[in-house]
Amino acid sequence: MKKVTGPLPTSPLAAVWQQAPATDVAVLAQQMTTPKLAKASVNKITAQALTDGKSIAWRVSWQDAAPNSNVDVNRFSDAVALEFPLTEFAAPMMGHRGGGKVQILYWRGLWQKDVDEGFQDVQNVHPNYLNSHYWFANGEGPYRVPDSFTNPASHQWFIAKQAGNPMAKFSRSEPAQELIAEGWGTLTHQPESATTAKGVWKNGSWAVIFTRPLATDDPNDHQFAQGEKGEIAFAVWQGGEGNVGARKHWSLWTAYQMP
């Protein structure tokens, strides 16, 4: 990790990353719980970190022949996650029940495309698809989300959105979210997020940066402190290889030193 005097970069392709120390971290196919990833398609990620004394930026990069930023039947998004322990001796496999709590910062290529290009509706994936009628939609078909659904009464047919599912947002300002876990099956969305992110695919590889303050007021956030040692773990999904959910690549804890 390196301390810089200027502002932290907002792009994973910024020139300052060329001077940041880099660590290659081995990742394995997840084969400890179902559904398992039968075969690994990534064997390592490269991690870097910069801090200005107030905030920290982590950069993760890995080889991927083609970007996957749409979803459909048997079509999944590329993604990457950082994990930090919230309790001592928490397991790197999303923590463990009975006190092994972790925080996870999660980025998806699908969300990055939503932020960069606008919400991806069904028509973006299937241009010739048409549904002739939606209750309380505005204007005439083909109806597009979210533009044709400004009437609050129309939202009652979007069940996931009405239930408050964070995966069902009509608009998204950040391509990442914060989560906590205490073992498999306990992954929980944090309603407030201090993390910003940006991912770029170029020349056969993804580079994603996560940026957040060193310290926050949220008890479910990992807290960074100058001069301290810590641990970080990683997970990566290649959508083009059928990676989704537990079908992922993951790493053990990797030590880091705050400057």
Rank of each mutant, 00 (worst) to 15 (best):
K2P: 00
Q162W: 03
A81G: 07
D24I: 03
A233Y: 13
G95L: 05
N151T: 04
K169S: 10
A194H: 14
T10V: 02
W58M: 08
T51P: 09
P175Y: 02
L8Q: 11
P142C: 00
G227V: 05
V208I: 15
A137H: 03
W58E: 11
A235C: 07
G100S: 09
A160S: 10
T186I: 05
T186C: 07
A79D: 10
T87D: 08
A246E: 14
W62Q: 10
S41V: 11
V200M: 09
W17N: 07
A40G: 14
G240Q: 11
A168I: 01
V200D: 09
Y256T: 05
Q226G: 03
L187K: 13
E117C: 10
D121R: 05
L252A: 10
Q31L: 00
K202I: 00
E140Y: 11
A90Y: 05
L86Y: 09
K113P: 01
A14Y: 02
T10D: 08
Q226N: 14
V244P: 02
Q156V: 08
K169Y: 03
F149V: 01
A57S: 15
A235E: 15
W253L: 00
H126W: 12
L214W: 13
T211A: 07
Y106G: 02
K54D: 09
A15M: 04
A20T: 14
N43R: 13
F158W: 13
A215H: 15
N68W: 07
S171W: 08
P152H: 08
K2A: 06
V208T: 15
V244Y: 13
T216W: 11
S173C: 02
G164I: 10
H222V: 00
W253G: 04
D218N: 15
T5F: 07
Q177F: 03
